[in-house]
């Protein structure tokens, strides 16, 4: 569960990247965070994950406040950043087990998770190679494995589908569904609207640091009294201002 209360962040004292954001992502839900480029999606995710500090407001993950109970809050989530070009000199397996160490995953659990994840993502043959030799999609997959190896309560992903082939993309979406169905939460940002429309239980649309709409897709259609696709509604919402 993620709760944001009155969260704001401005750069250079004037430019408001995120402006008084309120948001709740309950357990068992896939939540899509949509918005045009530069809308404040990544800034919001960085505040939730403790990378940057909000100027105002509170952020709680499973009830633990990130600015106060920092380490406990960080144990609650797994984060997939938008660029997977990290730890390139490590072998895939070294990276995943590094992540398992950081999150304190026990030996037996870790072994079986690594095996099953590698199998699902078709990475069994790549674990012994350095991440540098991976393609973009494979790097994305190893980062996702590094997160799922510690089985986080809350799963936060920044543009996770970029660069994945259709099969891996399908697998990832399947995993997100399983994750939510097992009573945990998934929060992800995207600008692929079809994915959001099909996958998400609820979406929020953010533009210029403000949330324009938050709810289910049918609610959105109801709200605007139209039966247009998410794409048209999205374009409509973000056009003005």
């Amino acid at each position: 569960m993620i709760e944001l209360n009155g969260v704001s962040k401005s750069y250079n004292g004037t430019y408001k990247a995120v402006d008084h954001l309120d948001l709740t992502v309950p357990k068992g839900e896939i939540f899509g965070f949509l918005g045009p480029n530069g809308a404040g999606k990544t800034t919001t995710i960085k505040m939730i994950t403790g990378i940057i500090k909000p100027d105002a407001g509170q952020i709680r993950i499973n009830g633990k406040e990130i600015g106060v109970d920092t380490i406990e809050a960080k144990k609650q989530f797994g984060y997939v950043p938008d660029s997977p070009d990290l730890f390139l000199r490590l072998k895939g397996l070294e990276y995943v087990s590094f992540m398992a160490d950081i999150y304190g995953v026990e030996q037996e659990v870790r072994n079986s998770r690594i095996h099953s994840l590698a199998k699902r993502f078709d990475m069994l043959d790549a674990l012994g190679d350095t991440i540098q030799s991976y393609s973009h999609g494979m790097r994305q997959k190893i980062v996702i494995m590094g997160v799922l190896v510690h089985h986080p309560e809350v799963w936060i992903l920044d543009e996770p589908l970029t660069g994945l082939d259709p099969k891996s993309s399908y697998t990832l979406k399947e995993m997100m569904r399983e994750h939510a169905d097992s009573g945990r939460s998934v929060f992800f940002s995207t600008h692929v609207l079809e994915v959001a429309e099909k996958l998400c239980d609820r979406v929020a649309i953010i533009n210029k640091g403000k949330i324009l709409f938050c709810g289910t897709f049918p609610q959105m259609q109801e709200h605007f009294q139209s039966h247009e696709s998410l794409e048209s509604l999205f374009l409509e919402l973000t056009k003005h201002e």
């Binding site: 160490d101 030996q107 072994n111 690594i114 350095t130 030799s133």
Partner: peptide, 19 residues
């Protein structure tokens, strides 16, 4: 950069994935 694309065997796996 070069890659082998070979499965990591039991012993190597145990070594790399050690807690």
């Amino acid at each position: 950069s070069a890659s082998k694309r070979k499965k990591v065997g039991g012993q190597d796996f145990a070594k790399l994935a050690k807690v």
